[in-house]
Design a protein around this nucleic acid. Sequence first.
DNA 1: ACAAAAGTGTTAAGCGTACACCCATGG
DNA 2: CCATGGGTGTACGCTTAACACTTTTGT
Lengths: 249, 249
Amino acid sequence: MTLADANDYCPGISLDCVIFGFHEGRLKVLLNKFSRYTKWMLPGGFIYKDEHVDAAATRTLVNRTGLSDVYLRQFYLFGDVNRTNMDENEDMLIRQGFSKDDEGVSKWFLQRFFSIGYYAFVEYGKVEAHSAMDEEVAWFGLDHIPPLYTDHNHIIDKAIATIRSQLNSIPIGYELLPEKFTLTQLRIIYETLLDTKLDRRNFQRKILSTGLVYKSDEVYKKWGQKSSALYSFDKDKYQDAIKNGISIF
Amino acid sequence: MTLADANDYCPGISLDCVIFGFHEGRLKVLLNKFSRYTKWMLPGGFIYKDEHVDAAATRTLVNRTGLSDVYLRQFYLFGDVNRTNMDENEDMLIRQGFSKDDEGVSKWFLQRFFSIGYYAFVEYGKVEAHSAMDEEVAWFGLDHIPPLYTDHNHIIDKAIATIRSQLNSIPIGYELLPEKFTLTQLRIIYETLLDTKLDRRNFQRKILSTGLVYKSDEVYKKWGQKSSALYSFDKDKYQDAIKNGISIF
DNA sequence: ACAAAAGTGTTAAGCGTACACCCATGG
DNA sequence: CCATGGGTGTACGCTTAACACTTTTGT
C-alpha cells in the first residue's frame, strides 16, 4: 500500500491470510517479507471503507497469488490490545525507510490494530507468487515456520486448530490438490492437520465410501514403486458436502 | 453509554452478545430494547481503546446480567458494508431523542460498524436482568424472536449454527443448567440446537457413558409424573472435555 | 534380492439405532 | 383407568480398527 491510501481504509482493522498449499508431499503456508526487514509475515491488508471484509480478503489473495475464486474463510478476530509490539513495529517501519517523524505513517502504523484472520486453500501449482518491488514471497512447510512478525505464529496455530475442528464435518483437499491426485496425497493432508498417522487402507475405504472421489483412468508413476491410481473429486458432491456437512472422521 | 465516551472507544467496531439461557423447558435469548424504539436488539457494546475485545464482551455481559465468570466465546466478525441500514439507524436515534444534527451523535452512530459476535451461556435463575433507565430487557424463546434491529436475527442464526457445529466435540449444559438437573432438560437443549428429536433412552446412555455427569441423591418431583433423577456435572471432567474435545454425537 | 509404496480383503469388537416393557403420579 | 413422562434392557446391523499378503518397480 501507499500511505496516501490510508484515508480510504477503515482505521484500526487489518486482515491476515493463512494461505495453505500442498507441494512435495507437504502442507505449506505462503509468507512474505519486506526486503529490508528480517521477519516474515502473513500476507495481509486493509479494508476499504466501502468494502465487504470478505472482498478485502479476496483482494489480498488475488494480489499475492494471482488466483481468484479460491476457498477463503474468516476464522477469528484477533483483538488483544498488545498483540502487536509497537517497538517491533517501529523498527520495521524504520528499516523500510519510513521516518517515524512522518505523522501519517506513525498515526496509521503505530495505532492499535484488530486483525481478522482468514485461511485459504490454493492449488500450489497455479500460484504465481507475486513479489511486489520491496517484498519477497515464499512457501514454508508447517514444520519450518520461523518466528514471524507480531502474533502471526499464533494466527497460524489458530487457523490450523480451526481447520482441524472442522475436519470431521467439512471435506478438504479439492482446493489444495490438482485435478488428479493420489489418495496418499490426500491422506497426508489429513495426517498433517490432525497431527496423526492414519491407516492407509482404512483411510482409502472411508474416503471412497463418501462418494466424493472417483478413480480416473490415469495412474501416477514416479519413484521406484508401483504406480498408483489417480482420483478426482466429484465437484457436485463435494460442494454439497461443504454445504450440508459430512461425517468423515 | 453516553456519547461523551465516544472518544474512548475504538471507532467502527462494536460487539453483540447472543446470551442463551434455559427456562421452562425452553432455550431462550436475552434481548433488550430502547424504550422509545420499537425493535429489540442484542445486548452489545463498544471496546475501549485499551481494552481486550474479550474483556469488552465480558463487561457487556456483566452489565446486562450481573454475572461474571460465564462461558463466553467469540464466534464471528460481521463485516458486511451494508449490515446496518442507516435510515433505520437514524430513525432509532431520533426516537431516542437524539438530534441528527448533533455532529457527535451522527459521526459515531451513522458510521459503518464491524460487529464482533459473541455467544454466552448463562444460568437463567442467576441472571438479574438489569434494565437501564431507558431500556427494557427480556428473554425470548428461540421460536419467538421478533424481527430485530439491523442484522441481529442473522447474528443469532449464525451463533446457533456455530454452536451446532461444535456440539459433537464440545460438551454443553454446564453453564445453562442449575447445579442439579434432569437429563430431559439436558436433552431438550440438544434437541433445540440440533433441531431434532433425540431418543430419550439412547441419549441418556450416551451422556452417561461420557462420564461427564453423575447421579445425585436427589430427585425432581413435579407435574403429575414419576419423579426423575437429578444429575450434576463432574466439573473437572467437563473442563477437560472443553479443553480436549469429546465425541458425543 | 531388497526396499518402498500400492492394491486388496478379513475379522472382531464396539457403537448406534430401533424398539418394549414396566413404574409412578395426577386428573 | 388413562395419559404422561421416567427407568431399564435387548438385539440387530453397521462402522471402525487392527491387521497380512501380494504386486510393482528402481537400485
